[in-house]
């Protein structure tokens, strides 16, 4: 029972993270490899907001240490992620897209990782932060198992809110414009819509959701350190998006649940050679990598593709070949055939 609660809690957090990444990759079409940096940032910021001031005699150093409540810590963490996302995004997205954006964001992650690992005064270096108080621990005074159940409920509640919010956003003018920007930025610019602003909004929104997921992750493990995450972690989240259906809210909900909860549980049934602690995690990653490749080959739009694609994912080719209905907000136009 405890184990099931633990698996479901971590799984729920992972699905929330995949949801946030789907805004950037699925809707805006930006391959953001810095996503997990925001997860870590959210976790760290919430941690140092909630922890008491560091005790230097125990060899601990970190910024802040304000001993605030979980509520305040979460708000500050999400806000910090959004602001950092705004700064990084406004620099990166203004100049680059596509593969260069992937390279820049991966670089940003590695820089953040290096500083969180090497610069102890920030987040206690390689030791990381630990002993983070329970959420609402002062008010609710749960037992250990009661708290675990409460955390599962909290994660489930956040997940429901996120899915509802994203479902609304997906249908909204913002969501549709964003997907149109992804499919054909040049045509969208012709309607006076700035692709840069839409993409930036998606980047900030995704970063904030990542930070929120990080806060929940911190509560789940009550500690956070560089050894606990790696920049490649972002990439595992992509598997859920690609399997479920790039861009589709319900598809990603399904895909992330199956791949990111199912695969790690399934590999536990495989007998590992004695003494090889890395065998199962490595096998799990291999399987996830293969799943991504198989889907890219055979079903690149996932199990549950976006409903009514605006242009199709490789839009440029398609709009060259046939007239398409172009939907942006309320503007409906028929583009003619392009030069063949």
């Amino acid at each position: 029972m405890t184990y099931a609660i633990s698996v479901l809690t971590l799984g729920g957090i992972t699905v929330i993270l995949a949801m946030g990444l789907n805004v950037q990759y699925g809707w805006a079409g930006d391959l953001n490899l810095s996503y997990y940096a925001y997860v870590a940032l959210g976790a760290y910021v919430c941690g140092v907001m909630m922890l008491p001031p560091p005790n230097a005699s125990e060899g601990n150093f970190y910024v802040l240490g304000l001993h605030q409540s979980f509520f305040v810590g979460t708000i500050v963490a999400v806000a910090v992620c959004a602001v950092v996302g705004l700064v990084v995004g406004s620099i990166a997205l203004r100049r680059v897209t596509g593969d260069y954006f992937a390279i820049v964001t991966l670089s940003v992650t590695l820089i953040f990782y290096t500083f969180s690992d090497q610069y102890a005064p920030l987040f206690n270096g390689p030791q990381g932060i630990y002993g983070v108080p329970h959420a609402f621990g002062g008010v609710l005074r749960f037992s250990y198992s009661g708290y675990n159940l409460f955390l599962l409920g909290l994660v489930a509640a956040v997940l429901v809110v996120v899915v509802f919010l994203f479902e609304v956003l997906y249908r909204s003018a913002f969501g549709r414009t964003l997907r149109a920007v992804r499919d054909d930025p040049i045509s969208v610019s012709a309607f006076g819509i700035s692709p840069y602003r839409r993409k930036l909004a998606a980047y900030v929104l995704g970063s904030a959701v990542g930070g929120l997921g990080g806060v929940l992750l911190l509560q789940y493990v009550s500690a956070f350190s560089p050894a606990g995450w790696s920049p490649l972690e972002t990439f595992l989240l992509f598997s859920g998006i690609i399997v479920g259906g790039v861009g589709s809210v319900w598809g990603v909900l399904f895909g992330a649940s199956v791949v990111l909860i199912g695969v790690p549980q399934a590999v536990l049934f495989i007998p590992a050679p004695a003494g090889a602690a890395t065998f199962l995690p490595a096998l799990q990653n291999c399987i996830i990598g293969l799943i991504i490749l198989v889907f890219l080959y055979l079903r690149p739009r996932g199990l549950f593709p976006e409903r009514s694609p605006v242009l199709g994912f490789d839009g440029a080719l398609k709009w060259q070949s046939r007239p398409v209905r172009f939907v942006v907000g309320r503007v409906r136009t028929l583009l003619g055939e392009g030069a063949a």
Binding site: A102, F238, N285, C286, G289, L290, I292
Partner: peptide, 11 residues
């Protein structure tokens, strides 16, 4: 292609 080479890297 970026995603597929990243998946390859992971594997």
């Amino acid at each position: 292609a970026v995603v597929s080479t990243l998946a390859g890297s992971l594997i």
